[in-house]
Design a protein around this nucleic acid. Structure first.
Length: 283
DNA sequence: ATGTGTTCCTGTCCGC
DNA sequence: TGCGGACAGGAACACA
């Protein structure tokens, strides 16, 4: 799915259509995604103004004038498309209804936000805004990697004694919230750390080095509009372009990009996920 | 408590 | 062209 940079890209794209705007009507075309939608979701959304559109990790959070917050997760294949809006001198026409358009928000003023999710690993729920942080999907999340609570001491502490590979540790949303398979591979490549290295085995300086690398990779990816491999699109349907900057992800058998490294990118499977890395310079 | 494997679902791509 | 299998950006859950 979209990892943090893709979700942040989507959030920014949704702001012109949603923030400060009223949802005139919500069409909910099926009873569930990964989990059932909350009872009466369509009615609870209809007539509500979106006061603020935020993000926590990979979750979009739409605070409503009703005192509730809509929580949205895009799963692996979820997309949000904005239409019926003029930005600059370009007008985004409404697309034809498509397969897997599960939820459509009709905004006052004619804009439309369409949630499409072929694989249906996505989710939506609603909860009182004051209780969002204690929602069961959010309450175990670790610090935001771009926030002040994410720092070397935090990683050093959480890695201590861990017998899990550093790849798995960085994918663990309780340790740091928002990284996924792509960006963990990219981070470890820049840090020259093998994904197989056990988290508890890394020296403190090496763990500390991960913090600015994580921030840099995520910020660069946000700047590029995220990565578009298969499913991710920005809200205007455009592709992100950070995939052109991948050092290792999806680049098996390509030469290692590290200067003067003669290595070749390898792919291994860890915890059921592909890891891409250079066995020569990542140790 | 902490670790790994399975599962949910559809679409795409690759080899035969 | 068709068909089967592998694989896909996530993460809860069951189990060792």
């Amino acid at each position: 799915m979209p990892e943090l940079p893709e979700v942040e890209t989507v959030r920014r794209g949704l702001i012109p259509a949603m923030e400060g705007q009223v949802i005139a009507q919500a069409d909910v075309n099926r009873p569930n995604l990964r989990w059932p939608f909350p009872a009466g979701m369509a009615q609870r959304l209809s007539g509500a103004r979106v006061v603020r559109l935020g993000r926590r990790s990979k979750y979009l959070l739409a605070d409503l004038s009703t005192g509730e917050t809509l929580i949205v997760h895009l799963g692996m294949s979820g997309r949000m498309q904005v239409s019926g809006l003029t930005i600059g001198d370009f007008h985004y026409d409404h697309p034809a209804p498509a397969k897997h358009d599960h939820v459509v928000l009709h905004m006052e003023g004619g804009a439309r936000v369409t949630f499409n999710d072929a694989r249906r690993f996505g989710a939506m729920d609603m909860i009182a805004t004051e209780n969002v942080a204690s929602h069961w999907l959010l309450d175990k999340l670790g610090p935001e990697p771009l926030g002040n609570d994410f720092h070397a001491d935090h990683l050093i502490t959480t890695f201590k004694g861990r017998r899990t590979p550093v790849k798995s540790a960085l994918l663990d949303q309780r340790i740091v919230a928002g990284l996924g398979n792509i960006y963990v591979c990219e981070v470890l490549s820049r840090a020259r750390i093998s994904p197989k290295r056990l988290a508890g085995q890394l020296s403190k300086p090496r763990i500390a080095s991960l913090v600015p690398i994580i921030r840099d990779v995520l910020e660069e990816a946000i700047e590029a509009g995220g990565s578009s491999l298969r499913d991710h699109r920005q809200t205007d349907g455009e592709l992100g372009y950070f995939q052109h900057n991948f050092r290792v992800y999806d680049r098996e058998n390509h030469p290692c990009p590290t200067p003067d490294c003669p290595g070749t990118i390898a792919r291994i499977t860890q915890a059921g996920r592909s890891s891409f890395y250079c066995p020569r310079c990542q140790r």
